[in-house]
Design a protein around this nucleic acid. Sequence first.
DNA 1: TAATTATGACGAC
DNA 2: TCGTCCTAATTAC
Length: 334
Amino acid sequence: MPEGHSVHRITRQFERNFVGRVVRASSPQGRFAAGAAELDGRRMTDARAVGKQMFLGFEGDRWLRVHLGMYGAWDFAGDILMDATIASANGRMGHTGQKGTFLESPNPDAVVFDTAGENSVTSIGAPRRTRLRMSESEKEGNELTTFPPEPVGQVRVRLLTDTVSADLRGPTACEVLDPARVEAVVARLGPDPLIDEGKAAEDRFAASVTKKPTPIALLLMDQNVIAGIGNVYRAELLFRARQNPHTPGRLVPEEHVRHLWRDWAKLLRIGVETGQMMTMDDLEGEAYRAAMANRADRHWVYKREGLPCRVCGTNIVLEELGARKLYWCPYCQA
DNA sequence: TAATTATGACGAC
DNA sequence: TCGTCCTAATTAC
């Protein structure tokens, strides 16, 4: 699945191309006909991500909650605005803030057009007529000859403006909620470093981990403990911390726990900026370029079972833990 | 053409 | 711990 970084990127795509516009909603597949009818004709007012959850806000206090699950995807087509500036979220209050609620707080994913400031990375530029699939990675599709394109396959929801369409397929969750139910979903999630900044969020994560007997590898995947981490980032974060995956949370040194939080915040930002799950950011020069170019060279341990560890040469181990694959180096992470 | 796989999550035992 | 749900791309036969 799209881990946290992709959901934040998709949210920004909606921010750029849908927020502020009147949206036609339909369910070509038919399985979301009632929900689509409820949204149809309303203006989209907001687009937010927390962990792997995305919330699209519409006039009249309607929210579309989407979770892509293992293989969900959004297909955008039309004259698409691409490559937004990464918003700086300094000082924003997140959902673990002391006052207010998630929906009342400023949207940390809001695109900031700061042409003069030092946070400005790229300009938006003109829309480009194309197709773009956004899932765990992003890729452009065939040339777009007619707009809107004919729906292909199992399209649960199609959202459509004058210029852009977005087709949702394969979601594990897709439902219309009122604000109270959005708050309830968000309240159950652990902190997300892009929403919950500062020491309070780190403290909350540390407190949650250091009192549990559960292996740290399972805690990192528990969305109630920390939001947005999936199987790739889990394996890579543990290797980067040289942390044994099986150590119970309460026995992991608190400094390691805090390191994991900060490292996740770092990798998440890199992921949102680049659209790649780049977990070997410490590499330099040619090694970095090779890692960016070749997916197989991009990770320390993920999907490298049986291959020698990049640090010590010991074979990377694959084991099942909680019905998911866990990759780790038994020597470096002893 | 069929089997396999996937970067989730939930509910029933 | 298991079964279940969601879909498409890739691989095997």
